[in-house]
């Protein structure tokens, strides 16, 4: 499978998790670039950055819900306020270990969330997302 996406952004406060997810994505070679940030604020800074060479607009965002400070939900609130150019056609996939059914309901009814996945991120899950939202066969 050749890289179809330009950039994927990973948002998770847990460094090992970011490392692991990057590894999975890199192995699949689905994106030219993979960036990982450790907080919602860092992600916002990334998205609004003027330096698009260093911080290219992501085609796909994997977002964790449970993070210290700004959590996944709060990030989405801020994300909604962003300029159209900073958001682009990004698909936000919630990655969480949460078994809380409330979170699932909330994810299903939030317009910016296209997918809801339970950690860990697997190659199969990535393939599914790509097929669904980017027409990869």
């Amino acid at each position: 499978m050749s890289p179809t996406l330009n950039c994927i952004l990973l948002i998770d406060d847990d460094e090992p998790t970011n490392f692991m997810n990057s590894l999975v994505l890199r192995k699949m070679q689905v994106a030219a670039q993979i960036h990982a940030v450790q907080s919602g604020q860092d992600a916002l800074d990334y998205l609004t950055s003027e330096d698009k060479a260093q911080h290219p607009k992501p085609d796909l965002i994997f977002l964790d819900i449970n993070m210290p400070g700004m959590n996944g939900w709060e990030f989405l609130e801020e994300y909604k306020q962003l300029d159209e150019k900073d958001r682009g056609h990004v698909v936000v996939v919630m990655l969480t270990t949460s078994l809380n059914p409330d979170d699932r309901t909330k994810a299903d009814t939030t317009p910016n969330i296209n997918e809801f996945h339970i950690k860990p991120l697997t190659a199969d899950a990535v393939r599914e997302v790509l097929e669904k939202h980017f027409g990869n066969k």
């Binding site: 449970n66 969480t96 270990t97 078994l99 809380n100 950690k119």
Partner: peptide, 15 residues
């Protein structure tokens, strides 16, 4: 238990 305890566990299994 479902969330915070699973996270390190998942890390351990993954690595």
């Amino acid at each position: 238990a479902s969330h915070d305890l699973q996270e390190p566990l998942r890390t351990i299994i993954g690595f």
